[in-house]
Design a protein around this nucleic acid. Sequence first.
DNA 1: ACTTACCAATAGACCGGTCGGTCTGGAAGG
DNA 2: CCTTCCAGACCGACCGGTCTATTGGTAAGT
Lengths: 191, 191
Amino acid sequence: MTHMTKERLLESGLGMLLERGYNDLGMQALLEATGTPKGSFYHHFRSKEDFTLQVIDRYMAEVHRGLDHSLGNTSLPPVERVRLFFELSQEKYRQEGYLGCLLGGVGQELSGVNETFRRKIESCFTAIATRIAGCLEEAQQRGELPPEKDPRQMADLLVDCWEGAALRSRLRRDPGPLGTMLDFYFSAAIR
Amino acid sequence: MTHMTKERLLESGLGMLLERGYNDLGMQALLEATGTPKGSFYHHFRSKEDFTLQVIDRYMAEVHRGLDHSLGNTSLPPVERVRLFFELSQEKYRQEGYLGCLLGGVGQELSGVNETFRRKIESCFTAIATRIAGCLEEAQQRGELPPEKDPRQMADLLVDCWEGAALRSRLRRDPGPLGTMLDFYFSAAIR
DNA sequence: ACTTACCAATAGACCGGTCGGTCTGGAAGG
DNA sequence: CCTTCCAGACCGACCGGTCTATTGGTAAGT
């Protein structure tokens, strides 16, 4: 009962931030959409910035759950586990109407001005790439990835290109760019 | 003399939009930075949105000049012309302090809410990809690109991945992601 | 068991500041 | 004289955030 309000705010906030971005999302809109009085919001969050950072944490928790599920699936070859993660993400994007990735959105919007968010988002990408790199290392040991490739660099590259494809998918409101990008990467990286 | 004010606004506007994005850039800041009174601004532009669209046009004019220069350099093999364009862009990003690409920034920020900008930015990407696709077709005819690849799709892919790398470069304030992405694409795509 | 005390959580009026945009007035120049 | 452009006072709306008042539930005190 007690922290349901906070939960509701984070949940709706995630969707609204994805659609509208940080600066275009006003307190009034958020509060009305969730039926929350101002006092409640500022009881649970220090500021709009604090709130948004917590929304990002929530988003990252989802991402890590997805990574657990995909990369943890040891019945698949490591490279296929990585691919599975992005195919899962693509399906999530579809459900949201192809609005892209929250990290890419907030990162793009705020990283020019706000150092806190710049670092935060970069650390999120680093975290994702690190987990993927671990999986690619395993692939390399198994001989399923050419030994001259640097797993770390390949993982960052994959994340970066994915974010670009996600932006284009947001612009076009369709999954095309995501699929094309994955096909290219996995056929090219693996040889 | 007459349109120097407008010129000044567009010029500064480009830099400020790149750094701060659309919603975070207030009229006051723009006007103060350029020493322009409000009356002048609204004499030359219908609205902030109109202004921003013109800034984008200006940005695209630059891009097309870069494409003219790179893709028009027939002393190079077509694929090298394409690569040259992105290496030129990378150098431009460096001069700006690695703030990424205006199209990516504004596109990411506004495409969730504003249909005008969504279409506008998408049409810009399409225009760039179209010109690159033309060059890749020439490469294909020369046998410098595998015949089974679709030049159009390869061009879109390149633009998308570039935008992703540009975002990461903005987050890290360094060119690493851009270079890695280009190396990967051109070694993998051409084969 | 009943009262009391306390506190997390809700509720919204209210704040100064800034937003994008309008309007009127005048200067400059053909 | 008439248009183009500069100049800035002014507008209502909304911004993120503060403040005080009041809930409702629970734990302690007797």
